[in-house]
């Protein structure tokens, strides 16, 4: 099962390697990991997408909690939540492809944020499947480069991860 784990961690040097080291040492999967400081600069928030059985996910959350610098851990995929990922994609855009690419971007509510006479850079936000669908919808031979941020997640409604 795929799980999205959110955690708050002290914003200290080496904190990221404690988390990533834990995953590699114990053989857990990381599908994506994102991290940045929160509104309180002394703390970072991390979103980890991982895959594992219930027992493994239980161990992952326990092991994360055991790290001295980890303040709080929540498996946000246990209840209603929102996931978003940002993708930047550079495509070849010449001739008739230029119009077609613009139309597809509009349909996906993506934005073209850089234009040259031969290429576009398109910005698209959404959950993973939306980004995958966009990649599937355009001619793959036109893709010059893609970069994805990995998932950010947040619980819906009253569910708040805060100290």
């Amino acid at each position: 099962m795929r799980h999205v784990i959110s955690l708050l961690i002290e914003n200290e040097s080496g904190a990221l390697s404690r988390v990533s080291g834990l995953f590699s040492a114990r053989g857990y999967n990381i599908e994506s990991l994102t991290v940045a400081p929160t509104e309180d600069a002394s703390m970072s928030r991390m979103t980890i997408v991982t895959v594992g059985s219930d027992e493994i996910i239980e161990q992952i959350t326990k092991q994360l909690n055991k790290l001295v610098e980890v303040v709080k851990v929540v498996d946000i995929s246990e209840a209603a939540h929102i996931e978003r990922e940002l993708m930047l994609i550079k495509v070849r855009a010449t001739g008739k492809d230029r119009e077609e690419m613009k139309r597809t971007a509009d349909i996906f509510r993506a934005r073209i944020i850089d234009v040259t006479d031969a290429s576009y850079v398109i910005e698209l936000t959404g959950n993973q499947s939306k980004l995958d669908a966009f990649l599937g919808a355009i001619d793959s031979s036109l893709i010059l480069e893609t970069v994805r941020s990995g998932i950010c997640g947040i619980g819906r409604g009253d569910r708040v991860l805060k100290i």
């Binding site: 040097s13 080496g14 390697s17 404690r18 080291g21 040492a25 001295v68």
Partner: peptide, 14 residues
């Protein structure tokens, strides 16, 4: 040292 010992300490500091 902090990197080498990270997986075998409860915690470490520089």
């Amino acid at each position: 040292t902090v990197g080498i010992t990270r997986p075998c300490v409860k915690h470490n500091f520089l």
